[in-house]
């Protein structure tokens, strides 16, 4: 078997708070192969963002800490690495873009300076060459008049354009993995379509892998090859995108898919949405056993006794459920 690009094993990232230990990520296993797009889906607080930030060690420690697990990047565990060693991996090998591009760009520097800074970190270039490189990146992400816009400040760009700038910055060192944390959530739907298309184009051009963190099942269905579904700090299902939508096995995944209104179904066939009752459990004291049990309509006694293991139910299709 080919070694995966990124292999997260049994990761536990916990946060110490005044109320106790929050088990935000509590035993996550996932892997990404070279050149593939993995969707990580789940609702607020399921641990998808903490998982992503753990990979780049962008977690404030304290209050956060790695309780257990490994983050194997091309076979090498990132957890014991020093900050200096991590800096060699960040941006150059693994880059990240965030939901709100305005808060991740520095408002007092031009976008050209900010992209040039990233380029200069990893290649020996003069400032002029680096700025020219930045303009080239802006052209690549389809920003009109890149030579002029490179001297503009972030506030002079619209939300969609800022996200293009972020993508340009992230890709300027040609990383092997792009982590995209809700990259289109703050954008309007027509702009979202543009950004998703741009990410696809960039992926084909640079051959990088993408870890797409999102809560939007529609975005996953249209852009990913494989999907990991998270719930309350655990992975509950992992499958190819076809298997996940065609034959979802975990009751949570099933509920998630059935609770979304579908534009493509005509009104006559419209059914009542299948809502999942209740709310997500408190991660301070996660319930013993399956964390979804309290909301699951198939729950049995055994479900609350121990956390079921991820079992393989089809080729590459894993589910954490006793059923």
């Amino acid at each position: 078997m080919v070694e995966p690009l990124l292999d997260i094993r049994g990761l536990k990232t916990w946060f110490k708070t005044d109320d106790g230990m929050v088990r935000a990520v509590d035993g996550v296993d996932l892997h990404i192969d070279r050149g593939e797009t993995l969707g990580v889906v789940g609702e607020s607080g399921c641990g998808k963002t903490v998982t992503a930030r753990s990979v780049l060690k962008l977690i404030d420690m304290p209050p956060g800490r790695f309780e257990a697990g490994q983050i194997l990047w091309q076979g090498r565990d990132l957890i014991p690495l020093s900050m200096d060693e991590m800096d060699k991996i960040r941006a150059k090998e693994i880059a990240i873009i965030f939901q709100e591009p305005m808060t991740s760009l520095n408002p007092v520097y031009t976008v050209g300076d900010q992209i040039a800074e990233v380029i200069a970190l990893h290649q020996k270039l003069s400032r002029k060459q680096a700025i020219a490189g930045a303009a080239e990146m802006l052209r690549l992400v389809n920003i009109p008049n890149p030579e002029r816009r490179v001297h503009d400040y972030p506030h002079q760009f619209s939300g969609g354009m800022r996200q293009r700038v972020m993508i340009a910055m992230a890709l300027s060192c040609q990383p092997k993995l792009l982590i995209a944390d809700e990259p289109t959530t703050a954008l309007d739907v027509t702009i979202q379509a543009q950004i998703l298309e741009l990410m696809q184009e960039m992926k084909e051009r640079f051959g990088m892998a993408i870890m797409l963190i999102t809560h939007a099942m529609g975005v996953v269905a249209e852009t990913c090859q494989r999907v990991t579904v998270m719930y309350a700090g655990n992975v509950v299902e992992e499958a190819s995108v076809e298997a996940l939508f065609g034959d979802p096995r975990h009751p949570y995944t099933q509920g998630l898919i059935r609770s979304i209104p579908r534009v493509d179904r005509s009104a006559e066939k419209k059914q009542r949405l299948e809502a999942i009752a209740g709310t997500v459990p408190n991660l301070l004291e996660p319930p013993p056993g399956c964390r979804f049990a309290a909301r699951c309509k198939f729950a049995m006694d055994v479900c609350t006794q121990g956390l079921p293991p991820l079992k393989e139910v089809g080729p590459g299709h894993y589910v954490r459920c006793v059923l």
């Binding site: 998703l196 298309e197 534009v263």
Partner: peptide, 23 residues
């Protein structure tokens, strides 16, 4: 264009997307 931009949560559905230029 707005309707065609909505992602459909079903990988078997392939639609023609009308991409709007600009903001």
């Amino acid at each position: 264009a707005l309707l065609s931009a909505v992602p459909i949560p079903d990988p078997t559905v392939k639609r023609k997307r009308i991409m709007l230029e600009g903001d």
